[in-house]
Amino acid sequence: MTDLSDKSIFLTGSGGVLGSTYVRRMLDAGARVIASELPGARYDGLAAKFGQNENFALYEMDVADEAAVGDTVSQILADGHKPNVFFNNASITGEMLMKAGAEFPDLANTTLDSWNKALSVNLTGPFLLAREIDRQVLGKWDLKLINIASMYALRAPHHDIYEGMPFKNFSAYQATKAGIHGLTLWLASSWRHKATVNTLAPGAVFNGHSEEFQKRVSELIMQGRMAQPDEIADVALFLSSSGANHMTGQFVNVDGGYSAW
């Protein structure tokens, strides 16, 4: 098992299927976990599940709110936490932008508001956290930053697999996930003597998908199946650990071979 007993990890967007898995696995590995999430059901779920763990702390934060990001990082430090690993995990998908039961738009009907919302959460949010790291933490102790992208960051989607599905591949999501790795490369170079910065790109992760969708996407994956959240967390823990000390500026696919065809 990966030992993270020397790590204090700050993780944004901690309440989703991957975020909550990262939290659980990081705590199991001995890390101190500082989680952030928007107020609401996901925040409440984290508090209920992990709130009694002395190595867990939870803060409300909107990653797209410039003042909130700065204030939260300041508060974390004022509370005595010394995070040495940061995860830019918060993200919004096209499904999350659609109201329940709303028809998913094609490109021609995608609103500028939806596009800008995705950019503000998926790309501006990681920039804002990186800027606060630079302002408030960088140089005080050794650091790692892991930016979460997607198997679609550098590979085109197969639009046919979404035909007839209640969701589609959203153009802004792919654009922001490609941009995340651009940010990784810039930061890895800028912080080269003070921190490592890498991109983790999860593949298709099972989250209650229909059998038909599982079949369609699995045919595009060398291993013939979608990932389980813990399989992505295995690599997230490695990138957080001292075993990844000589890795920086890297794009790490965990996609069952989707990107290798």
Rank of each mutant, 00 (worst) to 15 (best):
T2C: 02
D3R: 00
F10Q: 05
L11Q: 01
G16K: 03
L18E: 08
T21A: 04
L27P: 12
L27N: 12
D28L: 10
D28T: 12
D28E: 10
A31G: 01
R32Y: 01
S36K: 09
P39E: 14
R42D: 15
Y43I: 07
G45D: 06
F50N: 05
F50C: 09
G51M: 03
N53T: 10
N55C: 01
F56P: 02
A57D: 05
L58M: 10
D62N: 13
E66D: 11
A67W: 09
A68Q: 14
A68P: 09
A68N: 14
A68Y: 12
G70P: 03
T72L: 10
Q75W: 06
K82S: 07
N84Y: 03
F86N: 06
F86A: 09
F86I: 07
F86V: 08
N88H: 09
N88D: 12
N89Y: 05
A90H: 11
E95C: 04
M96V: 15
M96N: 15
L97Q: 12
L97D: 14
L97P: 15
K99G: 07
K99M: 06
K99D: 01
A100Y: 05
A100F: 08
G101C: 10
A102E: 08
A102V: 10
E103W: 08
P105V: 07
D106G: 11
D106M: 03
T110R: 02
T111P: 12
L112M: 14
L112N: 06
L112H: 09
D113N: 11
D113I: 12
S114F: 13
N116M: 15
A118G: 04
L119T: 15
S120Q: 08
S120M: 03
S120V: 08
N122Q: 12
N122Y: 14
L123M: 03
G125Q: 07
P126R: 13
L129V: 07
L129M: 05
A130W: 01
R131N: 07
R131E: 10
Q136S: 11
Q136Y: 11
D142L: 08
L145Q: 10
I146S: 07
S150E: 14
S150I: 13
M151K: 12
M151I: 13
L154V: 08
A156K: 07
P157A: 12
H158G: 04
H158R: 14
I161W: 04
Y162L: 15
Y162T: 13
E163M: 15
M165N: 11
M165P: 04
P166E: 02
Q174W: 05
K177E: 10
H181E: 02
L183S: 11
L183C: 11
L185F: 02
L187S: 06
L187M: 12
S190A: 13
W191H: 01
W191E: 01
H193L: 03
K194D: 00
A195K: 06
T196A: 00
V197W: 06
N198A: 02
L200H: 04
G203C: 00
V205C: 00
E211S: 02
E212S: 07
F213T: 00
Q214A: 00
Q214S: 02
R216W: 00
V217L: 04
V217F: 01
S218V: 00
Q223W: 03
R225S: 01
R225V: 00
A227D: 05
I232V: 05
A233G: 07
V235L: 14
V235T: 15
L239F: 06
S240T: 06
S240E: 04
S241M: 02
S241L: 06
A244M: 13
T248F: 09
N253G: 03
G257T: 10
Y258K: 15
Y258A: 15
W261C: 14
W261S: 13
